[in-house]
Design a binder for these strands. Sequence first.
DNA 1: GGCCAAATTGAATATAAATTCAACTAATGG
DNA 2: CCATTAGTTGAATTTATATTCAATTTGGCC
Lengths: 195, 195
Amino acid sequence: MARPVEFDEQKVLTNAMEQFWREGYEASSVQKLLDCTGINRGTLYNSFGDKDTFFKSCVDQYNKLMDQQITATLKNSNLNPWDAIGAYVEETLVNVSNKHRSMGCLLVNSVCESINYDKEMKKVVRASLGSIRKAVLGRMKEAQKKGGLRKGLSAEFATELLINSLQGARVNARDGKTGNQLKDLVKFTIESLKK
Amino acid sequence: MARPVEFDEQKVLTNAMEQFWREGYEASSVQKLLDCTGINRGTLYNSFGDKDTFFKSCVDQYNKLMDQQITATLKNSNLNPWDAIGAYVEETLVNVSNKHRSMGCLLVNSVCESINYDKEMKKVVRASLGSIRKAVLGRMKEAQKKGGLRKGLSAEFATELLINSLQGARVNARDGKTGNQLKDLVKFTIESLKK
DNA sequence: GGCCAAATTGAATATAAATTCAACTAATGG
DNA sequence: CCATTAGTTGAATTTATATTCAATTTGGCC
């Protein structure tokens, strides 16, 4: 029937995602996206739409990456709440390539660059932040039920505290801190939440 | 002798600083900088150099703002270390206009957007982060000397923990959190550092 | 084998970006 | 009151940028 696609959609999305992640939306020109993906100008527009649409697809790709990490750690029912949270920190800050770590977090970066994003774009950016929050909150509630949360602390506030620490770490990651330095920072926060 | 300058340098720098702060370096076109400062194209290049140079001057302007806050709080010798740190948090997260709070921190935003900045640009961006760190560290050492720092905690590590929390708060500020919500997050971190 | 549907290509277009510059303007001192 | 010095102006230039499109290619199906 029709001519088959030549590019590998996953590879294209992953490479473009890394470009946006490293340099942000504004500094990632279409030319740079073509260079890093290896696809042609027209192919990009034909298969992925304009730059805005493509960016949203790349954020979706990032969300999948995050979801994999969340599923393997926070949502791992073999782990107790604190171990799951610890595993998530280990996974996202330490067991990650230097390349990825030094780029921080695409979502955090986007929030810091975002003002001109349209409604839908902001929605996509916040979706993943929301799913991390939700997964953490579930574990915090569980920890609380088991009596493992410091007294006077709500599961909701504990969640915000952890996420604040994680987001700070993602900024510090871009500023050159090592995986272990970042882990130590967040682990201290976690200890302060435990009973 | 010569024709006197018509623009107010401080106002120009402040308005341009806010433009870069809100939208970042890449999204702030020279046209936008002309619009928000009210000066003419040629005047900008004549008096402030090219966009890179102008941006550096705006970061310097931001550094002055930060230094004022640091001087009034962290370096206020009438306050004990923890009160000085608390006052700094109050000053930067609560006693600040909604406009400024919602933009987060120019330096944090720049770190998250920075990859293309040249050496000198990164140097300027990091200068202020360094001066906050230094001022906090001074107070942490003082707190430690007075026996106010939690045992087993070095002044250096406590400083990194506080700054991590503050940087997380600056990201959350851009995500819409209120001054009090941000303060609560950072204050909890501070409490976890005290004896 | 020839035809069709869809993918690929890169040149062409349109718009916006950063920067330069020559003409113009304003205040001051001789 | 003119010459001088420096500031102001916006049009002109150059370079990027995003996007479109008509021509071309490809592989399967009748």
